Amino acid sequence: MKKLFLLFTLLVSVNILFADDINVWKKSTLNQILERGELRVGLEPGYMPFEMKDKKGRVIGYDVDLAKEMAKAMGVQLKIIPTAFDGIIAGLLTNKFDVIIAGMTITQQRNLKINFSEPYLVVGQTVLLNKNYKDEIKEAKDLDNAKYTITAKLGQTGEIVARKFFKNAQINTFDTEAEAVAEVLNKKAVAFINDQPYNAMFMDAKGKDKLIHMDKPLTYEPLAFAIKKGDPDFLNWLNNFLRQVKEDKVQDTYQRLYDKWFIDTSWLEKVQ
């Protein structure tokens, strides 16, 4: 009788655990995506080469192509939802989209609110300097002076880095990268702080003969997909997707997309 009771107790425990797993899956964003037949991705167009609008108004970029690969692997349609970066976490938490794929850097502060996948790319913040200051500013630390004005995009890592590294300088923030870097082009500011890929692309486009790219990264910044907390199934799928994309040398998806957006700059003709 005692053995039968123990067996019954074990079976009940197993059934409870199984039911809990099923409930977790039913609530998972991944399950909802599959039932809906649509992956909703939040991003802010305007961050070259990750996401931007071409001349026809279409959203293109590295993150967009990565999202297309993700939707294809899920067997669902992709829906891009343009969202201002300073409100993008709130958009995720209020279920306006399923995942953020927007060149978002993993930070401890953000991680308190949302969960991150493994990094899909690692970048760092660099400086675009007005060439008129090349003789007095030899390295980034020289910018930490009250007589200098530095610009960055509001709410992005560039602003955080600028305020951390250049406490004595005047820091001005703008809603877009284009507005912030234009201040440097127009000699209203000395330098612009942003991600290395963006700065490198800008130099190829509009920065030639006007700016100097101080390309030694000030920071180590892993970029990752962001999702709501409490969703182990979705996080597991995203991490496995990344491993497959990175390691599959037959399809070579990861390298192909990297070369397309970070090595070959022919796409610039589509946005200028």
Rank of each mutant, 00 (worst) to 15 (best):
P49S: 10
A200C: 11
T149Y: 10
L39D: 01
K134H: 15
M1F: 15
L39K: 02
T176L: 03
N31F: 05
K229I: 12
F225V: 05
S28L: 00
D259F: 14
Q244R: 11
F8R: 10
F8I: 15
Q244S: 14
Q108E: 15
G158W: 01
I81D: 06
D248F: 09
G103V: 02
Q125D: 14
V59G: 06
D142F: 14
A191D: 03
A180F: 02
F225S: 00
D248T: 09
R58F: 12
V250Y: 13
D98T: 05
S266M: 09
T265K: 15
T219D: 02
M201Y: 08
Y47P: 07
K138F: 15
V181F: 06
N172C: 11
A146R: 15
A140W: 05
T9Q: 14
I81N: 05
D175P: 04
D252Y: 10
T219Y: 01
Q244W: 12
I16Q: 13
E139G: 13
G103K: 04
K188T: 10
V99A: 01
V122H: 11
A169R: 10
D195T: 09
D209E: 14
V250T: 14
D21M: 14
A140C: 12
V271Y: 01
Y148N: 09
A191P: 04
V64K: 01
Q32G: 00
V41W: 00
G103T: 00
E118N: 12
V24P: 02
N172V: 12
F234V: 06
G103W: 01
A191I: 03
T173I: 15
T265N: 15
I137W: 09
